[in-house]
């Protein structure tokens, strides 16, 4: 099954660039990436730019409304994701636990919808 590991965190809680904590944080990400690649489970992975770059859009009564910032008023924002292929939820959770942001944010694990173009 394919799972998306969605990384939510509060940017204020994230280690600051240039600190030893930040280096450790990045080392953790490199290690997680390497492990997912060498296990052959990694399908895709991206990090998003900061939430201050977000623009949200909705259509109301046929009219497009565009606004600054993310839609939801929360402290934890989507910061990036992995898409992995794992045999079951437990395996997916094991990979999710490798993501360093789990120390101060939340990793949400969701199975992808399974479309079969053949039928």
């Amino acid at each position: 099954m394919k799972y998306m590991l969605l990384i939510y965190n509060d940017p204020a809680q994230q280690p600051k660039f240039g600190t030893p904590e930040f280096d450790q944080f990045m080392t953790g990400y490199f290690a997680a990436n390497e492990r997912m690649k060498s296990d052959g489970v990694l399908i895709a992975s991206e990090a998003l730019q900061g939430v201050q770059t977000a623009t949200s859009l909705r259509r109301k009564a046929g009219k497009v409304e565009t606004m600054d910032g993310p839609f939801a008023e929360t402290r934890e924002y989507l910061g990036g994701y992995y898409v992995i292929e794992a045999p079951d939820l437990d395996a997916a959770l094991t990979y999710a636990a490798l993501i360093p942001s789990a120390d101060f944010g939340t990793i949400e694990v969701r199975p992808l919808m399974d479309y079969n173009p053949a039928g």
Partner: peptide, 14 residues
């Protein structure tokens, strides 16, 4: 069924 929760006995680490 949808999330693939395994019908398995967890390994030693879990």
């Amino acid at each position: 069924a949808a999330t693939g929760i395994p019908f398995a006995i967890p390994g030693p680490d879990q």
